[in-house]
């Protein structure tokens, strides 16, 4: 418990939250462990959770332009790797759409802290100041990723 609390306290997405709120987030989330090569989420699937990389590294893969009328799934290309402290699943958390990318564990083990969307939204709705802090942090993370992507093109 202490280890996860400490991890979340130093994570960007929950930066600036009071201790009691960090503990609330610990209570609504859980850890999940994946093996190298294991798919964590798949593009196009419905989405419910926010993920933080607690240990290890994951790879983000997107479809590299499927060809119309060509059978078979489009080839998935890695676009970035995310290390400890990084968050993913935040796009679907904000827009409630399907997963925009496939995420695969690339280290053994990869440990994630998983926050269910419904409980997370309830927490933000109950305290709008907390909701503002977290949403601002998520916006900052999305901005960082967009700037990274722009430089990668």
């Amino acid at each position: 418990m202490e280890k996860i609390t400490d991890f979340l306290r130093h994570s960007e997405v929950f930066a600036g939250l009071p201790e009691a709120k960090i503990e609330q987030i610990v209570s609504i989330g859980h850890t999940a462990t994946f093996s190298a090569g294991e798919t964590i989420i798949s593009a196009g699937e419905p989405s419910d959770d926010l993920y933080l990389v607690q240990q290890g590294m994951v790879e983000v893969l997107v479809a590299s332009g499927g060809i119309v009328d060509t059978p078979g799934l489009p080839e998935m290309q890695p676009v970035v790797q995310l290390g400890q402290g990084q968050v993913f699943g935040e796009m679907a958390l904000v827009d409630q759409g399907a997963r925009s990318a496939t995420i695969r564990a690339i280290t053994e083990p990869t440990v994630l802290f998983v926050v269910p969307r419904a409980a997370f939204w309830a927490l933000c709705e109950a305290d709008h100041h907390i909701g503002f802090i977290v949403m601002r942090n998520i916006a900052c993370d999305l901005s960082f990723k967009l700037r990274h992507r722009n430089l990668s093109l």
Binding site: H10, E12, M57, E59, V60, Q77, P78, V79, V80, Q81, L82, G83, Q84, G85, Q86, F144, K145, R147, H148, L151, S152
Partner: peptide, 21 residues
């Protein structure tokens, strides 16, 4: 201070990474 770093590889032999250090 936590340094959140966007690593981009010239030539794209690696997809790049985002790491906290």
């Amino acid at each position: 201070m936590v340094y959140k770093v966007s690593y981009v590889v010239i030539g794209r032999s690696h997809p790049g990474a985002i790491l906290n250090q």
